[in-house]
Design a protein around this nucleic acid. Structure first.
Lengths: 239, 239
DNA sequence: CGCGGCTTTGATGTTCATCAAGTAAAGTGG
DNA sequence: CCACTTTACTTGATGAACATCAAAGCCGCG
């Protein structure tokens, strides 16, 4: 038995490699060993390059997605053909909870905006597990209601700000909740920011330039550095 | 045994009076008889007059609410002291699903905007039932994800319309989804409409007046009559 | 190399919030 | 029940915020 074989055998014994990652997460805490074993054996793992579509709006729901690593955007086109970004999700953060339980087709398109690894489970299996383990259902309910509340909250926050406030909020959001750094590479285009916070691309650019001229941020293509954190926070709060 | 006593005895046998109403509803289908009996005995029913607060934002979560009859608004004040209406809920339509499973305090204030009857269950009981009946969990997940998706959708719809479009959408929404009539009494003030669709009270009034002058609707205080349905629909779609 | 998508800046006009001021309606306390 | 206060409703005028249009540079990709 070489080293790789030993490792593979260990993985089998524990169910699967991402067990630690999954167990850390709220949801999968609740399933007993023998079932998490099934869960692991049935799941398939798939990776997506920046820009690749994970699943398309309106395609029939068959799977349940879990973000293992990377960053994903959820978007939707309305009848008026306008594209809207609903949310930007990070690992463990969003797990395709919305829609899958009540709809026939996915309501949102999921796109990788960085290299992303997704764990894919047949929805039937998830439902079956909820049927057999109420506590798992509670876990999903918690996660799902949190996700929804967060999205709704972002909409309200967004709507009660002017454009400068929205951009400031978005920059701070990336800094705090995704990259945990005052300097980072924007994973989205100016156009996508516009679609996320409901304004035009031109004004996104214009306001980013304003912030640069006011020495609040430094811009280098997609790289953003927050220089004057206090002022950015103030603009986000007052705006 | 007089008639009333006979009826009361029948109710006990079935659990409780609203059993039919509850069973019609998605959620409570999934609980077996003996448990729905508990559910009925523990629940308390309470009625609220127009304008009365059912539960306040930030108060600790203890109960799970179910709208038996009436109309309810969900609202929230942001740090900037602005009030936002998240949703207007009708019977069976919304059951305080958001937040209750993940939060410690209610995220939204619930207010009766018409005479409303609410069934109140201790949240612990609901959680206990999900633990014991996975299918009930599925029911709640369905309902909760539907509710969230609807709210998110309304936000997107709203944000992609100009003010005339928003007002048109709102009037049609009341007509179709709540009153199922082309003539109805608005249950909310102009100010509340403004808080629901994110604009100023003055402009709500202004645009309602415009619609009146353009003979699209008739207004008599709170009474709205949709006269030119086609044009209203067009304004809602194009706006 | 050229095409399409992304980015940038400027000019222009529309949409909408804000301010102001007045009427009507609905509570409130004596 | 009436005077009083407050809240809801209404219209107009003004300016600010924002979308739209236009034009040009940039970059990656076939």
């Amino acid at each position: 038995m070489n080293e790789i074989q030993v490792m593979e055998s260990k993985e089998k014994a524990h169910g699967c490699k991402c067990e630690e990652c999954i167990l850390k997460n709220l949801i999968f805490n609740y399933v007993p060993d023998e079932d998490s074993y099934i869960l692991c054996n049935v799941k398939r793992e798939q990776s997506f390059k920046k820009g690749e579509i994970i699943v398309k709006q309106n395609s029939p729901i068959v799977d349940f997605f879990y973000i293992k690593s990377g960053i994903v955007k959820l978007s939707k086109v309305t009848e008026s053909k306008r594209n809207h970004i609903i949310s930007i999700a990070k690992p463990h953060d969003y797990t395709s909870l919305l829609t899958v339980f009540h709809g026939k087709n996915y309501a949102y398109t999921m796109t990788a905006i960085e290299y992303t690894e997704i764990c894919i489970f047949p929805l039937n299996l998830i439902i079956d597990l909820v049927m057999r383990h109420g506590s798992f259902g509670i876990g999903l309910l918690k996660k799902s209601s949190k996700t929804a509340d967060d999205i709704i909250d972002r909409f309200i926050q967004n709507n009660s700000r002017n454009l400068r406030g929205r951009i400031a909020m978005t920059l701070l959001d990336f800094s705090f909740n995704i990259y945990k750094s005052h300097i980072y590479e924007l994973p989205v285009s100016r156009k996508e920011i516009a679609e996320l916070i409901g304004m035009t691309t031109e004004n996104v650019i214009r306001i980013l330039s304003e912030f640069r001229k006011e020495k609040i941020i430094k811009i280098n293509g997609k790289e953003i550095e927050i220089v004057d954190f206090e002022r950015l926070k103030m603009i986000s709060d007052r705006g």
